[in-house]
C-alpha cells in the first residue's frame, strides 16, 4: 500500500472500528437512546432527515465561506502591512494579539443585538475568527525575508515595491496557503457557534433545535455532518496548498 493511501485507509479503518465498538456498547451497557443513540439509529435519522440536513449544511457552508473570504482579504492586507513595515507592526501587532485573545463566542450576543438573528452574525463571527491566522502567517513570511536577498536586488536598483512583488509575495505563499487551512476551520467554528446561539438556519441551529426537542439522534447527526464538513473544508485547502506551492515541499 502506498503511503498516500495508507494515510486515508488507516484512519478510516479506525473510525469504522470505533463506530462498531459504539454500536455494540449501547445495547451491552443498556444505554438509553436519549442519552447515547447507537450509530445505526443516528444513520437512520440522517437518511430520513437528509433534506433538511442538506439545507442547513448548505447554509452553514455559505456563511462560513463568506466570512472566510472576507477574512482572507483583510488578513492579507493586514499581513502585508505588518510584514512590510516595522512601524505598522509595532503599532498593530499587540492590538491584534489582544483582540485575538477575546473568545469570539462572547461577541455573538453583541452582533445579534446589532444585526438581529440570522446569517449576518454567523458570517461576522466566522470572519472574526479567521482573519488572524492569515494575517500572522503572511506577516511572518514577509518579515523573515533574507536581508542578503534584498541587498542583491537593491544593488540592481530594485525598489521596495519590486522586492515585495518579486520576492516577498511568492516567498510568503506557502505560509499563506498553510494559513488558509487553519482559517477555514476557524471560520467554520465561528459560524456554527453563532448559528447555535442566534440563527434560524444552519447546522448549528439544527443541533440547537434537536437538543431542545431531546432529539439526541438528530443532534448526533448534526455533529457527524459538521465533522465531515470540517474535514472536507480542511482537505480542500490542504490540496490547494500542495498544488500552489509545490516548491516548498520538495523533500
Amino acid at each position: 500500500m502506498t503511503t498516500r493511501s495508507r494515510r486515508i485507509v488507516l484512519p478510516l479503518l479506525i473510525f469504522g472500528a470505533l463506530l462498531l465498538l459504539w454500536e455494540a456498547a449501547v445495547p451491552l451497557f443498556r444505554i438509553q437512546q436519549i442519552v447515547l443513540p447507537a450509530p445505526s439509529g443516528i444513520a437512520h435519522t440522517m437518511v430520513v432527515t437528509a433534506g433538511p440536513i442538506a439545507f442547513h449544511a448548505r447554509h452553514t457552508l455559505v456563511t462560513t465561506l463568506i466570512g472566510f473570504g472576507a477574512a482572507v482579504g483583510l488578513g492579507l492586507l493586514l499581513g502585508f502591512a505588518i510584514g512590510a513595515s516595522a512601524t505598522v507592526r509595532d503599532a498593530l501587532y499587540p492590538l491584534l494579539v489582544a483582540f485575538n485573545s477575546i473568545p469570539k463566542a462572547a461577541v455573538v450576543p453583541l452582533l445579534v443585538m446589532w444585526f438581529g438573528i440570522g446569517a449576518v452574525p454567523a458570517v461576522l463571527t466566522a470572519f472574526l475568527l479567521a482573519f488572524f491566522p492569515v494575517a500572522v502567517n503572511v506577516a511572518v513570511g514577509l518579515a523573515t525575508l533574507e536581508a542578503e536577498l534584498s541587498d542583491v536586488l537593491r544593488v540592481l536598483g530594485a525598489s521596495r515595491w519590486q522586492i515585495f512583488r518579486k520576492v516577498g509575495v511568492p516567498r510568503t505563499m506557502p505560509l499563506f496557503f498553510a494559513s488558509l487551512k487553519v482559517a477555514v476551520s476557524s471560520a467554520f467554528v465561528g459560524s456554527v457557534i453563532s448559528e447555535t446561539v442566534a440563527s434560524n438556519a444552519g447546522i448549528g441551529y439544527l443541533m440547537a433545535v434537536a437538543a431542545s426537542d431531546f432529539n439526541t439522534r438528530l443532534a448526533f447527526g448534526g455533529l457527524f455532518v459538521l465533522g465531515a464538513m470540517g474535514v472536507l473544508l480542511y482537505g480542500v485547502f490542504a490540496v490547494i496548498e500542495r498544488r500552489m506551492t509545490a516548491w516548498a515541499y520538495a523533500d
Binding site: 540592481l156 518579486k166 520576492v167 511568492p170 506551492t245
Partner: peptide
C-alpha cells in the same frame, strides 16, 4: 553584483529563471 555566504536563490524559480530575475528588475 553581490554574492554572500548564503546563496539566497529563489526556490520557486528554476536556475535559469533565478538568473533572469535581474533582467526583470532592470
Amino acid at each position: 553584483g553581490m554574492a554572500f555566504q548564503n546563496p539566497v536563490l529563489l526556490p520557486w524559480r528554476t536556475v535559469l529563471d533565478n538568473l533572469m530575475l535581474p533582467l526583470e528588475i532592470l
